[in-house]
Amino acid sequence: MVVFKKPDSLTNAELSFCPGCTHGIITRLVAEAIDELGIQGTTIGVAPVGCSVMAYNFFDVDMAQAAHGRAPAVATGIKRSDPNNIVFTYQGDGDLAAIGTAETVHAAARGENITVIFVNNAIYGMTGGQMAPTSLPGMVTQTSPYGRDTEKVGLPVKVCELLSNVDGATYLERVAVNSVPNINKAKKAIYKAFKNQVEGKGFSLVEVLSTCPTNWGLPPAKALEWLGENMIPYYPLGVYKDKYAGEEAAK
């Protein structure tokens, strides 16, 4: 009996992520959610620019590759073309919270019935470790070599908190993938974000705190610890908005 297998919604392509990076876990969680909802045949994904730029090779569904930051707009077009399809974006912090802030906020404001998976590892990974909109105060990166100086470059953008003030958003949750219990919670959140779309409930975004051992300069296990000790206190986990929470509780 098979007790553990590769999700159908993943291809056999080798993941291009660095060893120890938690992108692989998140990619798998997305595929599991697609499998469990039985929506592989109707799902269309949008890959961003960044470490997951080649997501179109990993998911066994129709995929589009978008320009940097534009995934929510491309997803809007795909969804509006055929609302029966399930459309998701998979975006990093530079993509979603810097160059694509407008597209993110307005897709949420429209209540666009799409699912956004937002991977926050507080750094630009693909380009070699530059300061991200979500880099922590004092964090050393290639473009903040003396640590993020909040006097000069300001404070990190907290996406879930920001979007929780956008009336159009349906569901916002921040999770992390630094431990098994947290991965299980992340799985539930991602599943819910897709299920919401299937049920026509509107814009769902799951922010996943993730590691970047390569650019953080830490061994993978230490990176997981660093995430728990530094990122979670700054970016508290939990549900930031759930428009239908009361309704579901009543059932």
Partner: peptide, 19 residues
């Protein structure tokens, strides 16, 4: 759909064109 910007509009076009 009136987009939030010209940039978003052309990317929505890309989305529909892709379908």
């Amino acid at each position: 759909l009136q987009a939030e910007s010209e940039i978003a509009a052309i990317n929505m076009v890309i989305g529909v064109a892709a379908t």
